[in-house]
Amino acid sequence: MSETPPETPQILVDGDACPVKEEIYKVAFRRNVAVTVVSNSPFRVPVHPLVRRVVVSDGFDAADDWIAEAAGPKTVAITADILLADRCLKAGATVLSPSGKPFTTSSIGSQIATRAIMADLRAGGDIVGGPAPFSKTDRSRFLSALDEALARLTR
């Protein structure tokens, strides 16, 4: 009986509002890992054999559904969407936010609860504004976290 070779690592990107696409390409090219950028609207991606763009319908959660279905144990998913992160974790994927902070099975429950509380506070007008601006530190943390995640998957 022959053993099937392990699935090769891949990166799935929730692309519509991702601020670190260039960093993803840089790490992916260096590590020779395929990248799929999933979005509701077309935008430019590098013309490169490792990069694929998937444009889904503009239906609610269409991009999230595509990413969650494609995620697996050899996947690094990049998203700021906590509910998508939860779905990818349940599929066995490694999940990173664009700031480089990992979503984990032990932290996702509290992150979902905090998201719900914040949504309620915003709906009541108690909180206005959004997350802090994306910083150079976030970008640097992301590069390091993605590189480490891919190193773990290729061992």
Score class of each variant (00 low, 15 high):
E22H: 14
V95H: 05
E3N: 10
S39P: 06
V45R: 04
T94C: 10
K136G: 15
T137M: 01
R122M: 13
T75H: 06
P49M: 08
V128E: 09
T75R: 05
V27P: 00
P46R: 07
A116M: 14
S41V: 13
P133S: 10
E3T: 13
D58A: 12
G109M: 02
L50A: 04
A91S: 12
I117Y: 03
C88H: 07
T137V: 11
A85R: 02
D58C: 13
A85E: 01
W66T: 00
K21M: 15
A34F: 12
V33D: 02
P102I: 02
T8D: 06
A91M: 10
K90H: 11
A63C: 09
A123S: 14
V33G: 06
V38D: 01
G129Y: 04
V35M: 04
A116T: 15
H48T: 03
V35I: 08
E7R: 14
D81P: 10
G109Y: 05
A62H: 10
P6A: 15
P49C: 05
A113T: 01
V56S: 07
E23P: 00
P98A: 11
A80Q: 09
I112H: 03
E22R: 15
I11W: 00
F29D: 03
V45L: 05
Y25S: 02
G109I: 03
E69N: 14
